[in-house]
Simulated assay, not measured.
Amino acid sequence: MQRYRDSASARKSYPIFEKLDAQIQRVTATFARLKTRGAVVVQDLFGGEILKTRTGAGMHFYNRIDGERHDLTLSQFDEPIQFDDVASTRDEAFADTSDAQYRALKEGLDLFCRGLLRPG
């Protein structure tokens, strides 16, 4: 079976790829806007706790799952941050996120976990 996803010209000839590409671009843009809100979606999918740390840009939210810190969006920082590991809540982490933004972010993380979306 020919692998169409490896060829840009082949991708253009199949409308399904255009739709998928548009969806991936939308999800990627949502990730960029909602970097600090990924902790809520990670908790939905994997459980654990939501933690927070104060940074120069405000509060940064991330997760602790089975005793291990997981920060989906650590790459947004130019310099290493000092983690305070302060317990937080879903409501606090979700405070400035709309339902539509949340759904788009959850869809993006689901695609990423299934290997259909690569970061960057």
Rank of each mutant, 00 (worst) to 15 (best):
S7I: 10
S9R: 00
S9G: 04
S9K: 00
A10P: 02
A10I: 08
A10G: 04
A10L: 13
A10E: 15
K12N: 10
S13T: 03
P15I: 14
P15N: 08
I16H: 14
F17S: 02
F17R: 05
E18M: 06
K19P: 00
K19E: 14
L20Y: 10
L20H: 09
D21H: 07
D21T: 04
A22C: 10
A22Q: 14
A22P: 05
Q23G: 07
I24Y: 13
T28N: 08
A29Y: 09
A29M: 07
A29W: 06
A29D: 15
A29L: 10
T30N: 14
T30A: 15
A32G: 09
R33H: 13
R33G: 00
L34C: 15
K35D: 15
K35T: 12
T36D: 09
T36E: 12
G38V: 08
G38R: 06
G38M: 14
A39Y: 11
V40H: 06
V40M: 11
V40G: 01
V41Y: 12
V41E: 10
V42M: 15
Q43G: 04
Q43M: 05
D44Y: 03
D44R: 01
L45K: 02
F46I: 05
F46V: 00
F46Q: 09
G47F: 10
G48N: 12
G48M: 01
E49T: 04
E49H: 09
K52Y: 07
K52Q: 13
T53K: 08
T53W: 08
T53F: 12
T53P: 10
R54C: 07
G56K: 00
G56H: 05
A57K: 10
A57R: 05
G58W: 05
G58T: 03
G58P: 01
M59S: 00
M59K: 06
M59V: 03
M59P: 04
N63D: 00
N63Y: 05
N63H: 06
I65H: 10
I65M: 08
D66R: 01
G67A: 02
G67E: 00
G67D: 07
E68H: 06
R69Q: 09
T73P: 08
S75R: 06
S75Q: 06
S75M: 11
Q76P: 00
Q76A: 13
Q76D: 15
F77R: 03
F77L: 11
D78C: 01
E79N: 00
E79P: 02
P80G: 06
P80T: 04
P80C: 13
I81Q: 15
I81P: 07
F83R: 04
D85N: 09
D85P: 06
D85Y: 10
V86E: 13
A87M: 06
S88Y: 05
T89M: 04
R90C: 12
D91F: 07
D91L: 02
D91I: 04
E92Q: 05
A93L: 03
A93Q: 00
F94S: 01
F94E: 15
A95S: 10
